[in-house]
Amino acid sequence: MTFYKGPITDHFDGERFFDRDGMPPKSWADLLRWRFGHKPAPWPDWAPSPYADTPPPRVTGDKARLSYVGHASWLIQTGGLNILIDPVWSQRVSPVSFAGPKRHNDPGIAFDALPQIDVVLVSHGHYDHLDLATLSRLAAKHAPRVITPLGNDLTMTAHDGAIRAEAYDWRDRVELGSGVAVTLTPTRHWTGRGAFDRNRALWASFVLETPAGKIYVVCDSGYGDGKHFRDVRHTHAPLRLAILPIGAYEPRWFMKDQHMNPAEAVQALADCGAAQALANHHGTFQLTDEAIDAPETDLYAALDAAGVPRERFAVLKPGQVFEV
């Protein structure tokens, strides 16, 4: 495997990436302690969504149409562009096809119902976000640009040279066309796909500039002290919409540095200052110990405790649509 090579920066030591405001990933000993000591809540074998979306070919004008595919996957249509976020259409998020976390519901958009895809944003290399099989299918049918943080492009092109991967650093701004641009922003997480490649690639969140306003897309993040969310507010305000993760948070001793719980997601919304939030990273793949409906239940409790109207932080099912 070929890894990223580049100059030393404030978040790259010449070999591995790091976050000065974050925490390194847990040790393998901690992982084994969790895996062999935990008692995950049972999930139903299949939890179908009552919704399925058939998107229009394009969305123009000052609008944005967001369709929830499931987990951290979204289709965002705005400015005449069709943009996929962390697309996963595979049945499992795992290095092998016969084991690992499996889907508990179908993608909210059937793959063949997708409109022409222009751009794909991939936040980092974990299997539930960087799905090589899906990226290859997209390359073969749509040939989109794939925007990703440094080093993840090498994972993609080693698998399939047809994937049009472009790698960028934190704070890089990329013009996508039609008045739409994306900036990669620091986020509290890490990455890796095997035993020996931890943080050999970078991870990021995204701020999309669209005709409907700025959309802050957080696919995976811990909360920490909230600095990254406040920094986005200071740099990119006003934000029309934030997509924030609410799932995969138990047990807290293991997950808190990499995944927010719903109460922290509510605080992240306050920190970034977005007018509206949508929830993601829940309800499709069982990655951690909480029940399938716990993120939504806990989110509503946290919103009520904070005095935030529930409609300001919407929870969609796969196939549901939100329009700006």
Rank of each mutant, 00 (worst) to 15 (best):
Leu244Phe: 04
Asn261Leu: 08
Asp293Ala: 03
Ala165Arg: 09
Leu239Ala: 11
Gly100Trp: 15
Lys63Val: 11
Leu299Gly: 03
Pro40Asp: 02
His159Met: 07
Asp13Pro: 15
Val266Cys: 10
Asp19Asn: 13
His71Ala: 02
Val96Pro: 02
Thr157Trp: 07
Asp304Pro: 12
Asp289Phe: 04
Val321Tyr: 00
His126Ala: 12
Gly61Val: 09
Glu323Tyr: 12
Ala195Lys: 00
Arg137Pro: 07
Arg16Leu: 05
Thr210Phe: 07
Leu299Glu: 01
Ala302Thr: 02
Val120Asn: 08
Asp118Phe: 08
Val120Leu: 12
Arg35Asp: 01
Ser205Ile: 11
Val180Tyr: 01
Ala279Gly: 00
Pro309Arg: 06
Ala242Thr: 03
Arg137Ile: 09
Trp46Met: 10
His281Val: 00
His159Glu: 10
His126Ser: 12
Pro56Asn: 07
His228Lys: 13
Val120Pro: 13
Val308Gln: 06
Phe229Met: 10
Thr78Ala: 11
Ala47Tyr: 02
Val232Thr: 09
His282Lys: 02
Asp53His: 15
Pro44Cys: 06
Arg240Pro: 13
Ala195Gln: 04
Ser136Asp: 14
Asp86Gly: 05
Gln276Asp: 13
Tyr300Gln: 00
Pro44Ala: 03
Ala158Trp: 09
Glu311Ala: 13
Arg188Ile: 12
Ala72Thr: 15
Ile246Tyr: 00
Thr155His: 10
Val324Leu: 15
Ala162Val: 07
Leu316Met: 12
Ala314Glu: 01
Val321Asn: 01
Ala165His: 08
Leu239Ile: 05
Ser73Arg: 03
Trp203Asp: 14
Thr284Phe: 01
Asp62Glu: 11
Pro7Val: 10
His142Met: 05
Ile76Glu: 03
Val182Thr: 10
Val266Asp: 02
Val207Ala: 12
Leu75Gly: 02
Ser49Arg: 06
Asp298Arg: 11
Ala248Ser: 11
Trp190Lys: 15
Pro238Leu: 05
Phe36Leu: 15
Leu75Asn: 01
Pro262Glu: 00
His281Met: 00
Leu150Trp: 03
His126Gly: 10
Asp13Leu: 12
Gly222Lys: 10
Gly6Val: 03
Arg252Phe: 03
Glu209Arg: 05
Val59Ala: 03
Ser97Val: 09
Pro238Ile: 05
Ile117Pro: 15
Ala181Arg: 01
Asp298Gln: 11
Leu75Glu: 02
Ser27Gly: 13
Leu299Asn: 03
Ala201Met: 15
Ile147Asn: 09
Pro309Lys: 08
Pro245Asn: 03
Thr148Cys: 12
Pro40Lys: 05
Ser94Pro: 06
Leu66Thr: 07
Leu150Thr: 02
Ala237Met: 02
His282Met: 01
Ala139Asn: 06
